[in-house]
Design a protein around this nucleic acid. Structure first.
Lengths: 206, 206
DNA sequence: GATTCTTCTTGAACATTGTTCATTTTCGAG
DNA sequence: CTCGAAAATGAACAATGTTCAAGAAGAATC
Protein backbone atom coordinates (compact mmCIF):
# COMPACT_ATOMS: atom_id res chain seq x y z
CA UNK A 1 0.00 0.00 0.00
CA UNK A 2 1.27 3.40 -0.96
CA UNK A 3 1.12 6.02 1.75
CA UNK A 4 1.57 8.87 -0.63
CA UNK A 5 -2.07 8.79 -1.56
CA UNK A 6 -2.90 11.00 -4.43
CA UNK A 7 -6.56 11.75 -4.39
CA UNK A 8 -8.29 9.82 -7.10
CA UNK A 9 -11.09 11.24 -9.16
CA UNK A 10 -13.41 9.02 -7.20
CA UNK A 11 -12.22 10.38 -3.89
CA UNK A 12 -12.55 13.94 -5.08
CA UNK A 13 -16.14 13.46 -6.14
CA UNK A 14 -16.91 11.58 -2.97
CA UNK A 15 -15.46 14.33 -0.83
CA UNK A 16 -17.18 17.07 -2.71
CA UNK A 17 -20.51 15.36 -2.36
CA UNK A 18 -19.97 14.58 1.28
CA UNK A 19 -19.31 18.22 2.04
CA UNK A 20 -22.25 19.28 -0.06
CA UNK A 21 -24.61 16.98 1.79
CA UNK A 22 -23.38 18.25 5.12
CA UNK A 23 -23.72 21.86 4.03
CA UNK A 24 -27.28 21.29 2.94
CA UNK A 25 -28.21 19.35 6.06
CA UNK A 26 -26.69 22.00 8.28
CA UNK A 27 -28.57 24.69 6.42
CA UNK A 28 -31.88 22.96 6.89
CA UNK A 29 -31.29 22.30 10.58
CA UNK A 30 -30.13 25.85 11.16
CA UNK A 31 -33.06 27.49 9.42
CA UNK A 32 -35.94 25.11 9.95
CA UNK A 33 -34.90 22.93 12.84
CA UNK A 34 -33.88 19.32 13.18
CA UNK A 35 -37.44 18.07 12.80
CA UNK A 36 -37.55 19.45 9.27
CA UNK A 37 -34.52 17.53 8.08
CA UNK A 38 -35.62 14.87 5.56
CA UNK A 39 -33.42 12.46 3.61
CA UNK A 40 -35.20 13.10 0.37
CA UNK A 41 -34.88 16.86 0.69
CA UNK A 42 -31.18 16.57 1.31
CA UNK A 43 -30.67 14.13 -1.55
CA UNK A 44 -32.60 16.27 -3.99
CA UNK A 45 -30.80 19.46 -2.97
CA UNK A 46 -27.46 17.66 -3.32
CA UNK A 47 -28.44 16.29 -6.72
CA UNK A 48 -27.99 12.68 -5.77
CA UNK A 49 -30.11 9.72 -4.72
CA UNK A 50 -31.11 8.86 -1.21
CA UNK A 51 -28.96 5.76 -1.50
CA UNK A 52 -25.86 7.92 -1.81
CA UNK A 53 -26.63 9.65 1.44
CA UNK A 54 -26.87 6.28 3.11
CA UNK A 55 -23.75 5.08 1.40
CA UNK A 56 -21.85 8.04 2.75
CA UNK A 57 -23.25 8.29 6.27
CA UNK A 58 -24.61 4.85 7.06
CA UNK A 59 -27.93 6.12 8.30
CA UNK A 60 -29.72 9.36 8.92
CA UNK A 61 -28.34 9.70 12.42
CA UNK A 62 -24.95 9.67 10.75
CA UNK A 63 -25.73 12.89 8.93
CA UNK A 64 -27.09 14.57 12.05
CA UNK A 65 -24.18 13.46 14.19
CA UNK A 66 -21.66 14.70 11.68
CA UNK A 67 -23.34 18.09 11.64
CA UNK A 68 -23.40 18.08 15.45
CA UNK A 69 -19.73 17.15 15.55
CA UNK A 70 -18.89 20.14 13.39
CA UNK A 71 -21.08 22.36 15.50
CA UNK A 72 -19.27 21.53 18.70
CA UNK A 73 -15.96 21.86 16.86
CA UNK A 74 -16.88 25.34 15.68
CA UNK A 75 -18.11 26.25 19.14
CA UNK A 76 -14.87 25.09 20.72
CA UNK A 77 -12.84 27.08 18.21
CA UNK A 78 -14.80 30.21 19.02
CA UNK A 79 -14.42 29.67 22.73
CA UNK A 80 -10.70 29.06 22.38
CA UNK A 81 -10.45 32.43 20.70
CA UNK A 82 -11.44 34.22 23.88
CA UNK A 83 -8.43 36.19 25.19
CA UNK A 84 -6.87 34.74 28.31
CA UNK A 85 -4.63 37.44 29.71
CA UNK A 86 -7.05 38.34 32.46
CA UNK A 87 -8.80 35.35 33.98
CA UNK A 88 -11.85 37.31 35.11
CA UNK A 89 -12.33 38.81 31.67
CA UNK A 90 -11.83 35.38 30.23
CA UNK A 91 -14.73 33.98 32.22
CA UNK A 92 -17.03 36.75 31.07
CA UNK A 93 -15.70 36.33 27.57
CA UNK A 94 -16.42 32.60 27.54
CA UNK A 95 -19.98 33.11 28.72
CA UNK A 96 -20.66 35.94 26.32
CA UNK A 97 -19.12 34.10 23.42
CA UNK A 98 -21.23 31.09 24.22
CA UNK A 99 -24.26 33.35 24.21
CA UNK A 100 -23.30 34.87 20.87
CA UNK A 101 -22.69 31.49 19.32
CA UNK A 102 -25.91 30.08 20.71
CA UNK A 103 -27.88 33.08 19.46
CA UNK A 104 -26.37 32.77 16.00
CA UNK A 105 -26.86 29.03 15.74
CA UNK A 106 -29.70 28.22 18.08
CA UNK A 107 -31.09 25.35 16.05
CA UNK A 108 -27.69 23.79 15.57
CA UNK A 109 -27.03 23.88 19.30
CA UNK A 110 -30.44 22.40 20.01
CA UNK A 111 -29.66 19.63 17.58
CA UNK A 112 -26.48 18.99 19.52
CA UNK A 113 -28.13 18.88 22.92
CA UNK A 114 -31.55 17.46 22.13
CA UNK A 115 -31.02 14.86 19.45
CA UNK A 116 -31.79 11.34 20.65
CA UNK A 117 -30.48 8.33 18.82
CA UNK A 118 -32.71 5.83 17.08
CA UNK A 119 -33.40 2.65 19.05
CA UNK A 120 -31.08 2.72 22.01
CA UNK A 121 -27.78 3.22 20.34
CA UNK A 122 -25.36 5.25 22.42
CA UNK A 123 -24.45 8.79 21.53
CA UNK A 124 -20.94 8.82 20.04
CA UNK A 125 -18.31 9.25 22.69
CA UNK A 126 -16.15 11.65 20.76
CA UNK A 127 -18.94 14.22 20.54
CA UNK A 128 -19.71 13.94 24.23
CA UNK A 129 -16.04 14.32 24.98
CA UNK A 130 -15.83 17.44 22.84
CA UNK A 131 -18.75 18.96 24.68
CA UNK A 132 -17.18 18.14 28.01
CA UNK A 133 -13.92 19.65 26.82
CA UNK A 134 -15.69 22.82 25.79
CA UNK A 135 -17.35 23.05 29.17
CA UNK A 136 -13.96 22.58 30.78
CA UNK A 137 -12.62 25.75 29.19
CA UNK A 138 -13.47 27.66 32.34
CA UNK A 139 -11.02 25.50 34.21
CA UNK A 140 -7.76 27.37 33.49
CA UNK A 141 -9.01 30.83 34.44
CA UNK A 142 -10.62 29.43 37.56
CA UNK A 143 -7.34 27.81 38.56
CA UNK A 144 -5.62 31.14 38.27
CA UNK A 145 -8.32 32.84 40.30
CA UNK A 146 -8.43 30.21 43.01
CA UNK A 147 -4.81 29.10 43.34
CA UNK A 148 -5.37 27.43 46.69
CA UNK A 149 -8.31 25.30 45.67
CA UNK A 150 -8.25 21.60 44.96
CA UNK A 151 -7.94 20.91 41.27
CA UNK A 152 -10.74 18.35 41.27
CA UNK A 153 -13.05 20.86 42.90
CA UNK A 154 -12.19 23.41 40.27
CA UNK A 155 -12.94 20.91 37.55
CA UNK A 156 -16.34 20.38 39.09
CA UNK A 157 -16.87 24.10 39.52
CA UNK A 158 -15.98 24.68 35.91
CA UNK A 159 -18.60 22.21 34.74
CA UNK A 160 -21.16 23.58 37.15
CA UNK A 161 -20.63 27.16 36.11
CA UNK A 162 -20.74 26.42 32.43
CA UNK A 163 -23.81 24.24 32.83
CA UNK A 164 -25.50 27.06 34.70
CA UNK A 165 -24.66 29.50 31.95
CA UNK A 166 -25.91 26.99 29.42
CA UNK A 167 -29.22 26.73 31.28
CA UNK A 168 -29.68 30.48 31.42
CA UNK A 169 -28.90 30.89 27.75
CA UNK A 170 -30.73 27.91 26.32
CA UNK A 171 -33.92 28.73 28.21
CA UNK A 172 -33.47 32.43 27.60
CA UNK A 173 -33.26 31.91 23.87
CA UNK A 174 -36.14 29.47 23.80
CA UNK A 175 -38.56 31.52 21.81
CA UNK A 176 -41.26 29.13 22.94
CA UNK A 177 -40.87 30.50 26.43
CA UNK A 178 -40.92 34.18 27.15
CA UNK A 179 -38.07 35.00 24.84
CA UNK A 180 -35.68 37.25 26.64
CA UNK A 181 -34.41 40.03 24.37
CA UNK A 182 -30.79 39.25 23.36
CA UNK A 183 -29.33 42.40 24.85
CA UNK A 184 -31.15 41.73 28.08
CA UNK A 185 -29.91 38.18 28.08
CA UNK A 186 -26.35 39.35 27.89
CA UNK A 187 -26.89 41.57 30.87
CA UNK A 188 -28.52 38.65 32.63
CA UNK A 189 -25.51 36.41 31.99
CA UNK A 190 -23.04 39.07 33.05
CA UNK A 191 -24.90 39.77 36.25
CA UNK A 192 -25.07 36.11 36.98
CA UNK A 193 -21.32 35.82 36.71
CA UNK A 194 -20.86 39.00 38.73
CA UNK A 195 -22.74 37.46 41.60
CA UNK A 196 -21.14 34.09 41.32
CA UNK A 197 -17.60 35.43 41.24
CA UNK A 198 -18.40 37.62 44.21
CA UNK A 199 -19.61 34.53 46.01
CA UNK A 200 -16.32 32.84 45.24
CA UNK A 201 -14.52 35.79 46.79
CA UNK A 202 -13.25 37.09 43.49
CA UNK A 203 -13.37 40.83 42.98
CA UNK A 204 -14.93 42.01 39.74
CA UNK A 205 -13.10 44.36 37.44
CA UNK A 206 -15.63 47.10 37.15
CA UNK B 1 -79.36 22.65 28.71
CA UNK B 2 -79.22 21.05 32.10
CA UNK B 3 -76.31 22.15 34.25
CA UNK B 4 -76.75 19.32 36.70
CA UNK B 5 -74.86 17.00 34.45
CA UNK B 6 -75.00 13.45 35.52
CA UNK B 7 -72.25 11.56 33.85
CA UNK B 8 -73.66 9.37 31.16
CA UNK B 9 -72.34 5.94 30.42
CA UNK B 10 -70.79 7.40 27.33
CA UNK B 11 -68.96 10.08 29.26
CA UNK B 12 -67.72 7.60 31.82
CA UNK B 13 -66.26 5.36 29.16
CA UNK B 14 -64.77 8.31 27.37
CA UNK B 15 -63.12 9.57 30.50
CA UNK B 16 -61.82 6.21 31.53
CA UNK B 17 -60.30 5.68 28.13
CA UNK B 18 -58.83 9.14 28.03
CA UNK B 19 -57.08 8.58 31.33
CA UNK B 20 -55.96 5.14 30.27
CA UNK B 21 -54.40 6.46 27.09
CA UNK B 22 -52.58 9.15 29.01
CA UNK B 23 -51.34 6.68 31.59
CA UNK B 24 -49.98 4.41 28.90
CA UNK B 25 -48.39 7.24 26.95
CA UNK B 26 -46.79 8.63 30.08
CA UNK B 27 -45.46 5.19 30.96
CA UNK B 28 -43.85 4.75 27.57
CA UNK B 29 -42.29 8.21 27.60
CA UNK B 30 -41.04 7.75 31.15
CA UNK B 31 -39.47 4.37 30.55
CA UNK B 32 -38.38 4.43 26.93
CA UNK B 33 -38.30 8.09 26.00
CA UNK B 34 -40.43 10.29 23.79
CA UNK B 35 -38.95 8.85 20.60
CA UNK B 36 -40.40 5.44 21.46
CA UNK B 37 -43.96 6.68 21.74
CA UNK B 38 -46.03 5.27 18.85
CA UNK B 39 -49.74 5.72 18.22
CA UNK B 40 -50.29 2.06 17.48
CA UNK B 41 -48.55 0.93 20.65
CA UNK B 42 -50.69 3.25 22.73
CA UNK B 43 -53.88 2.19 20.99
CA UNK B 44 -53.13 -1.48 21.37
CA UNK B 45 -52.19 -1.15 25.02
CA UNK B 46 -55.38 0.82 25.64
CA UNK B 47 -57.42 -1.77 23.79
CA UNK B 48 -58.81 0.65 21.25
CA UNK B 49 -58.21 1.70 17.68
CA UNK B 50 -55.83 4.38 16.54
CA UNK B 51 -58.82 6.38 15.43
CA UNK B 52 -60.01 6.67 19.00
CA UNK B 53 -56.74 8.21 20.07
CA UNK B 54 -57.15 10.79 17.35
CA UNK B 55 -60.78 11.31 18.24
CA UNK B 56 -59.77 12.08 21.81
CA UNK B 57 -56.62 14.13 21.30
CA UNK B 58 -56.86 15.54 17.80
CA UNK B 59 -53.37 14.50 16.82
CA UNK B 60 -50.33 12.87 18.29
CA UNK B 61 -48.93 16.12 19.57
CA UNK B 62 -52.13 16.37 21.55
CA UNK B 63 -51.24 13.27 23.53
CA UNK B 64 -47.70 14.43 24.16
CA UNK B 65 -48.77 17.91 25.17
CA UNK B 66 -51.35 16.56 27.57
CA UNK B 67 -48.71 14.41 29.22
CA UNK B 68 -46.36 17.39 29.36
CA UNK B 69 -49.08 19.52 30.87
CA UNK B 70 -49.56 17.00 33.64
CA UNK B 71 -45.82 16.76 34.15
CA UNK B 72 -45.42 20.46 34.76
CA UNK B 73 -48.51 20.40 36.94
CA UNK B 74 -47.03 17.62 39.08
CA UNK B 75 -43.70 19.43 39.21
CA UNK B 76 -45.35 22.63 40.35
CA UNK B 77 -47.28 20.77 43.03
CA UNK B 78 -44.07 19.24 44.34
CA UNK B 79 -42.28 22.58 44.34
CA UNK B 80 -45.19 24.25 46.11
CA UNK B 81 -44.81 21.66 48.84
CA UNK B 82 -41.39 23.00 49.80
CA UNK B 83 -41.61 24.62 53.25
CA UNK B 84 -41.37 28.39 53.20
CA UNK B 85 -40.70 29.43 56.78
CA UNK B 86 -37.08 30.11 56.15
CA UNK B 87 -36.39 31.73 52.79
CA UNK B 88 -32.84 30.42 52.54
CA UNK B 89 -33.93 26.87 53.27
CA UNK B 90 -36.72 27.35 50.78
CA UNK B 91 -34.29 28.16 48.00
CA UNK B 92 -32.23 25.07 48.73
CA UNK B 93 -35.43 23.09 49.02
CA UNK B 94 -36.71 24.25 45.65
CA UNK B 95 -33.46 23.33 43.93
CA UNK B 96 -33.18 19.97 45.65
CA UNK B 97 -36.81 19.15 45.00
CA UNK B 98 -36.36 20.03 41.36
CA UNK B 99 -33.37 17.71 41.29
CA UNK B 100 -35.33 14.90 42.92
CA UNK B 101 -38.24 15.31 40.55
CA UNK B 102 -35.96 15.50 37.54
CA UNK B 103 -34.08 12.39 38.61
CA UNK B 104 -37.32 10.47 39.14
CA UNK B 105 -38.89 11.58 35.88
CA UNK B 106 -36.00 12.45 33.62
CA UNK B 107 -37.66 11.38 30.39
CA UNK B 108 -40.89 13.20 31.22
CA UNK B 109 -38.98 16.39 31.89
CA UNK B 110 -37.04 15.99 28.67
CA UNK B 111 -40.30 15.55 26.83
CA UNK B 112 -41.46 18.81 28.37
CA UNK B 113 -38.38 20.77 27.43
CA UNK B 114 -37.32 19.16 24.19
CA UNK B 115 -40.49 18.36 22.32
CA UNK B 116 -40.90 20.38 19.15
CA UNK B 117 -44.25 20.76 17.49
CA UNK B 118 -45.03 19.38 14.06
CA UNK B 119 -44.82 21.91 11.22
CA UNK B 120 -44.48 25.28 12.86
CA UNK B 121 -47.41 25.29 15.18
CA UNK B 122 -46.76 27.21 18.37
CA UNK B 123 -46.25 25.48 21.67
CA UNK B 124 -49.40 25.90 23.79
CA UNK B 125 -49.28 29.03 25.87
CA UNK B 126 -50.73 27.52 28.99
CA UNK B 127 -47.88 25.03 29.29
CA UNK B 128 -45.26 27.70 28.77
CA UNK B 129 -46.99 29.83 31.35
CA UNK B 130 -46.98 26.97 33.84
CA UNK B 131 -43.27 26.47 33.33
CA UNK B 132 -42.63 30.15 33.81
CA UNK B 133 -44.75 30.10 36.94
CA UNK B 134 -42.78 27.16 38.30
CA UNK B 135 -39.54 28.99 37.62
CA UNK B 136 -40.95 32.02 39.41
CA UNK B 137 -41.31 30.09 42.65
CA UNK B 138 -37.95 31.40 43.78
CA UNK B 139 -39.37 34.89 43.66
CA UNK B 140 -41.04 35.06 47.09
CA UNK B 141 -38.06 33.84 49.11
CA UNK B 142 -35.76 36.12 47.17
CA UNK B 143 -38.01 39.07 47.93
CA UNK B 144 -37.75 38.29 51.60
CA UNK B 145 -33.99 37.97 51.41
CA UNK B 146 -33.48 41.13 49.40
CA UNK B 147 -36.11 43.50 50.74
CA UNK B 148 -34.48 46.56 49.25
CA UNK B 149 -34.19 45.28 45.71
CA UNK B 150 -36.37 46.24 42.80
CA UNK B 151 -39.15 43.75 42.26
CA UNK B 152 -38.53 43.49 38.54
CA UNK B 153 -34.89 42.70 39.20
CA UNK B 154 -35.87 39.98 41.60
CA UNK B 155 -38.20 38.50 39.04
CA UNK B 156 -35.33 38.36 36.62
CA UNK B 157 -33.01 36.96 39.26
CA UNK B 158 -35.52 34.27 40.07
CA UNK B 159 -35.70 33.14 36.46
CA UNK B 160 -31.95 33.32 36.10
CA UNK B 161 -31.27 31.29 39.20
CA UNK B 162 -33.80 28.64 38.38
CA UNK B 163 -32.57 28.43 34.80
CA UNK B 164 -29.05 27.97 36.07
CA UNK B 165 -30.14 25.19 38.39
CA UNK B 166 -32.04 23.65 35.51
CA UNK B 167 -28.91 23.69 33.38
CA UNK B 168 -26.79 22.07 36.07
CA UNK B 169 -29.35 19.37 36.68
CA UNK B 170 -30.42 18.62 33.14
CA UNK B 171 -26.84 18.30 31.94
CA UNK B 172 -25.80 16.52 35.10
CA UNK B 173 -28.47 13.88 34.63
CA UNK B 174 -27.77 13.51 30.94
CA UNK B 175 -26.50 9.98 31.00
CA UNK B 176 -25.17 10.61 27.52
CA UNK B 177 -22.66 12.99 29.01
CA UNK B 178 -20.49 12.04 31.92
CA UNK B 179 -23.36 11.18 34.18
CA UNK B 180 -22.74 12.80 37.50
CA UNK B 181 -23.67 10.45 40.37
CA UNK B 182 -26.97 11.64 41.91
CA UNK B 183 -25.54 12.22 45.36
CA UNK B 184 -22.69 14.19 43.88
CA UNK B 185 -25.14 16.19 41.83
CA UNK B 186 -27.01 17.22 44.92
CA UNK B 187 -23.81 18.43 46.48
CA UNK B 188 -23.04 20.27 43.27
CA UNK B 189 -26.38 22.04 43.30
CA UNK B 190 -26.10 22.93 46.97
CA UNK B 191 -22.62 24.33 46.56
CA UNK B 192 -23.76 26.31 43.58
CA UNK B 193 -26.46 27.95 45.64
CA UNK B 194 -24.06 28.45 48.53
CA UNK B 195 -21.79 30.47 46.31
CA UNK B 196 -24.55 32.37 44.61
CA UNK B 197 -26.26 33.38 47.82
CA UNK B 198 -22.91 34.47 49.21
CA UNK B 199 -22.47 36.59 46.12
CA UNK B 200 -25.83 38.18 46.78
CA UNK B 201 -24.66 39.03 50.25
CA UNK B 202 -26.89 36.48 51.91
CA UNK B 203 -25.37 34.51 54.75
CA UNK B 204 -25.82 30.76 54.59
CA UNK B 205 -27.35 28.85 57.46
CA UNK B 206 -24.66 26.33 58.11
C1' DG C 1 -7.55 1.13 -25.97
C1' DA C 2 -10.00 -2.97 -24.58
C1' DT C 3 -11.10 -5.85 -20.80
C1' DT C 4 -11.95 -6.89 -16.27
C1' DC C 5 -12.66 -5.91 -11.60
C1' DT C 6 -14.00 -3.04 -7.94
C1' DT C 7 -16.63 0.43 -6.17
C1' DC C 8 -20.17 3.66 -6.18
C1' DT C 9 -24.81 5.18 -7.63
C1' DT C 10 -29.37 4.62 -8.43
C1' DG C 11 -34.20 4.45 -7.42
C1' DA C 12 -37.78 1.31 -6.95
C1' DA C 13 -39.56 -1.35 -3.33
C1' DC C 14 -40.18 -1.99 1.50
C1' DA C 15 -41.03 -0.86 6.55
C1' DT C 16 -42.58 2.14 9.93
C1' DT C 17 -45.55 5.42 11.57
C1' DG C 18 -48.70 9.56 11.68
C1' DT C 19 -53.32 10.73 9.68
C1' DT C 20 -57.86 10.48 7.48
C1' DC C 21 -62.56 9.04 6.74
C1' DA C 22 -66.39 6.09 5.08
C1' DT C 23 -68.59 2.61 7.47
C1' DT C 24 -70.30 0.40 11.46
C1' DT C 25 -71.45 0.31 16.24
C1' DT C 26 -73.10 2.22 20.39
C1' DC C 27 -75.77 5.03 23.21
C1' DG C 28 -79.50 7.99 24.65
C1' DA C 29 -83.97 10.27 23.62
C1' DG C 30 -88.67 10.04 22.35
C1' DC D 1 -88.47 -0.19 19.89
C1' DT D 2 -86.92 3.21 16.68
C1' DC D 3 -84.24 6.77 15.19
C1' DG D 4 -80.68 10.12 15.16
C1' DA D 5 -76.39 11.66 17.04
C1' DA D 6 -72.05 10.58 18.66
C1' DA D 7 -68.24 7.58 18.92
C1' DA D 8 -65.36 3.69 17.44
C1' DT D 9 -63.28 1.21 13.93
C1' DG D 10 -59.60 -0.07 10.88
C1' DA D 11 -58.50 -0.09 6.15
C1' DA D 12 -56.34 3.03 3.20
C1' DC D 13 -53.33 6.90 2.57
C1' DA D 14 -49.20 9.86 3.16
C1' DA D 15 -44.75 10.89 4.70
C1' DT D 16 -40.39 9.27 5.62
C1' DG D 17 -36.38 6.20 6.96
C1' DT D 18 -34.07 2.05 4.97
C1' DT D 19 -32.56 -1.69 1.88
C1' DC D 20 -30.70 -3.82 -2.15
C1' DA D 21 -30.47 -5.77 -6.88
C1' DA D 22 -29.10 -3.86 -11.04
C1' DG D 23 -26.57 -0.69 -13.58
C1' DA D 24 -22.88 2.98 -14.15
C1' DA D 25 -18.43 4.72 -13.41
C1' DG D 26 -13.83 4.58 -12.31
C1' DA D 27 -9.40 1.95 -11.60
C1' DA D 28 -6.33 -1.71 -12.80
C1' DT D 29 -4.32 -4.82 -15.95
C1' DC D 30 -2.88 -6.28 -20.26
Amino acid sequence: MNNVQEESLRDRKKNRRRLQILEIARGIIATKGLKSLKVRDVAEAAGCSVGSVYNEFGDFDGVILTVNRETVRALTARLRGVPGQDPVRQLYGLAETYLEFFAEHANLLRSLFEHRMEDDRPYPDDILQMVMDAFALMHPPLVRLLPDADDVKIALLSRTLFSAVHGIISLGLEERMVAVPPQMLRQQVDQFIDVHLAGLGILPLR
